[in-house]
């Protein structure tokens, strides 16, 4: 990409020390997202897509998690090494996060107004005294934010309790809360998975609109390839703790290179076309307690060769900012 990355994850390896042994959750993840860009991370259960971003805000307890190598650079600052003090100034102010189930992240005994105001006031601890907002100003700011996420009647809704709102409205509140500190980067972990499709469409439109309006960078984690295709510029496909393919939506979805991406795209029934045959990917995720040597997808890959028993080369095509982790492309590739 031409613009410098806001967040740059480099050669990130992470293990979980579990009762059954060492679980090699992430193996050399490289990702970056530029200013105003939106990156989608897709993959199936257990591929490590959520784990990858949890530690951007230091959210993985250690133990059991153990970082083996790599760095997560936010504007050049390694988030794996920041002090708790620095982290406080980044959380919510520079980087914000939203999650799958909004109810879990809202306290049921306080009104959303109280909770939002508290968050806004907490963000200001770093400011000098004169610049701080009063409680009243913070509340006004909260109403503004709620208006921005198109919550109907924000002036009255702000005094409601979370259980009085629908799932879609709660997710809007959570987004408003996340954006109240005007962060530069928003990490959304399956933000629409718990919602119905018609509500999901509303929330996706909202996220796309906010990206444009606020110049936000977004990392969107989802298992739904359709969601990524709808709002992201770039996409990283993860499998068993590795990014197997990365590129623009057009490239990856239009001309998939990695056999796993291909398989994944072929396994989704298409709502817009009459049924054709579906191709599930046979087999199961490798056991990451004891990952296979070489390519982690080899056991399920229809194109597996002898050489796949050795670690696959990461091939970049610089012109298109495209990465594929597969021996098929050990000679490099060009995009037609």
């Amino acid at each position: 990409m031409t613009n410098t990355p806001v967040l740059d994850i480099r050669d990130y390896r992470l293990n979980f020390n579990t009762f059954d042994g060492v679980y090699h959750a992430l193996d050399g993840v490289n990702l970056s997202v530029g200013k105003g860009e939106s990156l989608g991370i897709v993959g199936e259960t257990g591929c490590g897509k959520s784990v990858t971003v949890r530690n951007v805000l230091g959210l993985l307890p250690s133990p059991p998690a153990e970082v083996i190598s790599g760095e997560i650079l936010y504007n050049g600052l390694d988030m794996l090494k920041v002090t708790p003090e620095q982290m406080k100034k980044i959380r919510g102010i520079e980087i914000a996060m939203i999650f799958q189930d909004p109810m879990t992240y809202l306290n049921p005994v306080f009104t959303i107004g109280t909770q939002m105001t508290d968050v806004i006031l907490a963000h200001q601890k770093a400011l000098a005294k004169g610049e701080k907002k009063s409680r009243k100003e913070a509340r006004a700011h909260a109403v503004d934010m709620l208006r921005k996420v198109h919550l109907p009647n924000p002036e009255t809704q702000i005094d409601r309790y979370p259980h009085e709102l629908s799932g879609g409205m709660r997710q809007r509140v959570l987004i408003a809360m996340a954006l109240s500190g005007s962060p530069k980067l928003l990490i959304a972990d399956e933000p629409t998975t718990a919602l119905d499709v018609t509500i999901q469409a509303q929330i996706l439109d909202l996220i796309a609109e906010l990206v444009d309006d606020m110049g936000l960078s977004v990392i969107l984690i989802t298992h739904d390839l359709g969601v990524v295709a709808k709002i992201c510029d770039n996409v990283a496909v993860m499998y068993a703790g590795q990014v197997v393919e990365y590129g623009t939506i057009e490239e990856v979805f239009g001309r998939p290179k990695h056999p796993y991406t291909e398989g994944l795209l072929k396994s989704i029934p298409h709502p817009g076309r009459p049924p054709e045959e579906l191709f599930g990917i046979p087999g199961f995720l490798p056991n990451l307690l004891n990952p296979p040597v070489g390519c982690r997808f080899q056991a399920r890959c229809s194109k597996a060769m002898e050489i796949c028993g050795t670690p696959a080369p990461n091939r970049n095509n610089a012109a298109h900012d495209r990465t594929v982790l597969c021996h098929l492309y050990s000679e490099g590739f060009d995009d037609a």
């Binding site: 499709v197 018609t198 999901q200 469409a201 509303q202 996706l204 439109d205 739904d224 390839l225 359709g226 969601v227 990524v228 295709a229 709808k230 623009t248 939506i249 057009e250 979805f253 239009g254 795209l265 989704i268 298409h270 709502p271 817009g272």
Partner: peptide, 18 residues
């Protein structure tokens, strides 16, 4: 039907969501 996001690039913007 229009609300379902399609897994393909360059999908045209369809009708307004509900």
């Amino acid at each position: 039907l229009e609300a379902v996001p399609l897994p393909e690039p360059g999908q045209p913007r369809r009708g307004k969501p509900l």
